[in-house]
């Protein structure tokens, strides 16, 4: 306890020991995004157009639906972690910071739920 920062010595606690977890999750989801988002962009470019029938046909294929669900979960988890770091770096007021972190969590969970439910509905409902 005698070798940390001044603040750490005063509090006698040191770090919360959770920094590496956030960092590692960010890297894992980043690696997932390299694969999933690159696949998504290439797939969109290979579709003949983005009309309703083409898009819903494409999304109702099982492999596409599975990959899109993985992508939605991965993208919204990655952006939750990333936005949190930016907020923590630039917002100094603790109350504002707390409110924005809450908002980011709602946005990420809500966005993932909307995306995943929509993909499932199209995939299970069969293309119209």
């Amino acid at each position: 306890m005698g070798t940390g920062t001044g603040l750490g010595r005063v509090r006698g606690l040191g770090s919360a020991k959770q920094g590496a977890h956030h960092w590692w999750q960010q890297r894992l989801t980043a690696a997932g995004n390299v694969l999933l988002v690159s696949w998504f962009v290439l797939s969109l470019l290979r579709l003949p157009d983005l009309s309703y029938s083409v898009v819903t046909d494409w999304l109702s294929s099982p492999l596409v639906a599975i990959a899109m669900i993985l992508l939605s979960a991965n993208v919204f988890w990655h952006l939750r972690l990333g936005l949190q770091v930016v907020i923590e770096d630039y917002i100094e007021n603790e109350a504002t910071k707390l409110a924005v972190i809450l908002l980011i969590n709602f946005y990420a969970a809500g966005g993932a739920a909307v995306a995943i439910f929509s993909i499932a509905k199209i995939a299970f409902g069969g293309a119209a």
Partner: peptide, 22 residues
Amino acid sequence: GVGLAVVGGLLLAWWLLSAASG
């Protein structure tokens, strides 16, 4: 990253939701 997270994320969710809504 912030642009992709906010604009890209909203656009992705909106696109999928509208495709699922008919």
